[in-house]
Design a protein around this nucleic acid. Sequence first.
DNA 1: AATCAGGGTTAAGGCAATATTAACGAAATT
DNA 2: AATTTCGTTAATATTGCCTTAACCCTGATT
Lengths: 225, 225
Amino acid sequence: MQFKVLLVDDEQDILDLLKYNLEKEGFVVETASNGRLAVQAFESFQPQLILMDVMMPEMDGMEACREIRDLPQGSNVIIAFLTARNEDYSQMAGFESGGDDYIAKPIKPRILVSKVKAWLKRWEQKADQAIAEVSTGGLVIDKEKYLVTNNGEVFNLPKKEFELLALLVSAPGRVFTREYILNAVWGNDVIVGDRTIDVHIRKLREKLGEELFKTIKGVGYKFEP
Amino acid sequence: MQFKVLLVDDEQDILDLLKYNLEKEGFVVETASNGRLAVQAFESFQPQLILMDVMMPEMDGMEACREIRDLPQGSNVIIAFLTARNEDYSQMAGFESGGDDYIAKPIKPRILVSKVKAWLKRWEQKADQAIAEVSTGGLVIDKEKYLVTNNGEVFNLPKKEFELLALLVSAPGRVFTREYILNAVWGNDVIVGDRTIDVHIRKLREKLGEELFKTIKGVGYKFEP
DNA sequence: AATCAGGGTTAAGGCAATATTAACGAAATT
DNA sequence: AATTTCGTTAATATTGCCTTAACCCTGATT
């Protein structure tokens, strides 16, 4: 697998140093010089790992971290902070905003590379788990093949229906608000009416069974086997 | 969800500017001109976020922050300070008194709005996690699944009933005034008659047990296992 | 005993939220 | 190019929650 790493720092020297060392190890590397650009780069580049400075102009690392986490694909990337020192507080704050780990400056190339490898190994494990196959009740969702099997019967759901189903099934019993569903399935920026969700729910109920999808008025929907 | 923001500053100009920009984004905004008023406003308005100047007459921001944190609901609000400059020390002091974050003056509307959105998103996550499951006596409230279990029996309460129950159970034994309940469950702006609360209490008593909800005449209600 | 204040109870109507259906444009498929 | 499929919306129906009005009950006050 070809791993992609996004480096974010406002000092060009550091970017160059890290980029050189990581590319030498076979990673694909892109860089961004502030938080706002990082968010953009994440969307287009879709890296598995982001190495980001905490302190930056325009938009700081914590802020960028939160924004990325809120994107549809943002929950799978690993975000690690470059901290200027052993500033305990900046570390804490970084984790609070959804960062996974940190590495202290000054950065030694060998340590960096070994940490990066460890992070990417972790990412692989997480990804395997997450995508492999979700199954609840008589329902099996194969994300790889984009197939849904319900008590032996195989369905070939369209994209939106599939994603909505996968979301609901990812946490059986849990109520997902309409707002949350819109963010997760359609994305933060897309504007669609509320009735769109209803219609997709209806199709799922039609195909898989009316009783599986429960409406919580004023709140949202949940899946229950 | 309708988010409420409380602005606290002694300069009317700043209040006006911030209020205008936040209301344009759909937030409900109230203002206070010093720390003492801020504490009062917090109690009646119950915002999710407080933006507060550090330096103010009467009672300064840090002092107000501490007082608010000591109130029953004070641990859930996010408090952010408006700092006059990059005065690192005032920032540190702000954190020590219980502040969550800060924003530096001069304030640019766009940055303000994006920060406010990020804070409120964080608040939502925290609120979801924190209150996910409350349990007292034989009663379990699962906010995630929107389910209430009483001694094994499962109930599927409508929204208002559920929220009223969750509020009362959040502090067993504590008396909630009618006014407070109206603010917390219905919102500050909604106008409903007093009998509405009675009816919802009645439904809860009916479903979960008469004895669990005690009336304090002339004051309000409390939950007691 | 009469009055009053505060709360309890019930049922019905209004209304907001959701369900349903059909239809349209865009994209994919043939 | 014709056909099919998908995603969305508009329009209409339906559901069930919320609220209220009207009346009852209790205990305190006069």
